[in-house]
Amino acid sequence: MTTFAESLKKEIARVARKELRDEIGALRKTSLLQRTEIAALKKQLKALQSQVNRLGKVRPEPARAALPAASAASVAHPRGKPGRKVVFTAERLKTQRARLGLTQEQMARLLGVSSLSIWKWESGGAAPRASRVPKILQLLALGKREALARVEPEAP
């Protein structure tokens, strides 16, 4: 009787493996389809993120050159909206410096800091002290001619 019981157990195990094989195959197919779909969605997300970044760079900044550079309050609240501050960002400093046609060294001379500080601010490695931010924002609000005129007298 033991051989009958053993052969019955073996047959049950064989049938179970056979049925599981079919089910596992279906699960593998489903899993593969889901993985490929996830990969496609990741590619689509990456493309959309790069498109958003490009559009963010293309978006024109508000015309701050038209603002008078006389007071820090006019820079802190553009277009007369109280409660809305202009915030210092590394990217803005870099683009505005390029727009003004100034080198990092010239910008540093105008602000009374080292060119290394300008480089660190632009690369995001450091942030300027809070006491320097209004002066930086005033300088960034200048027009190209006015900024170059301020640099010329200080040139050796």
Rank of each mutant, 00 (worst) to 15 (best):
L93W: 00
I12V: 15
Q106C: 07
E146G: 03
V87L: 15
A47L: 05
K57H: 10
Q44R: 15
A127L: 12
G112L: 05
K120C: 07
A98Q: 07
Q138D: 06
I24W: 11
L20I: 09
A65F: 12
A70L: 14
E154S: 10
F88L: 09
G124E: 03
L139N: 02
A147H: 02
Q49L: 10
T103L: 03
A40N: 09
A40P: 00
T95E: 11
Q106G: 06
L116V: 15
A155N: 11
A40H: 09
D22R: 15
E154A: 10
F88Y: 04
R54S: 06
D22E: 15
K94S: 08
Q138K: 15
G101S: 02
L93T: 02
T30S: 10
E6G: 04
Q104V: 05
P153D: 15
Q96N: 12
V75Q: 06
A98D: 04
Q34D: 05
A73L: 06
V75I: 12
E19C: 09
R132K: 13
K85Q: 07
A5K: 13
V52K: 14
K57S: 06
R92P: 02
T36C: 10
A66D: 12
A155E: 15
P78H: 08
L41S: 05
I38T: 06
G25A: 14
W121I: 06
L8V: 14
G83M: 08
R129T: 09
E61R: 14
S74F: 01
R129V: 07
R92S: 09
E105A: 11
P134T: 11
L20V: 06
A73R: 07
G124C: 07
R92H: 07
P128T: 14
L142K: 03
A141E: 02
L142C: 03
E91W: 10
K120W: 01
L148R: 13
W121C: 01
I118F: 00
A65T: 12
L55C: 10
V52N: 09
G25F: 07
A5R: 14
A66Q: 11
A26V: 11
E37T: 11
A76F: 05
R35I: 08
R99L: 00
P128C: 14
A72F: 00
L8F: 08
K135E: 15
K144A: 08
A141P: 02
N53I: 10
Q96P: 00
E146H: 10
Q44A: 13
S131F: 07
S74I: 11
A63S: 13
Q49F: 06
A141H: 07
T103N: 04
I12L: 12
S71H: 07
E105C: 01
R17T: 03
R17E: 08
A141C: 06
L20A: 13
Q138C: 02
L33A: 06
L48E: 08
P60C: 11
S74G: 05
I136L: 06
L100V: 00
P62M: 14
R97D: 02
R150C: 06
V15R: 13
L55N: 15
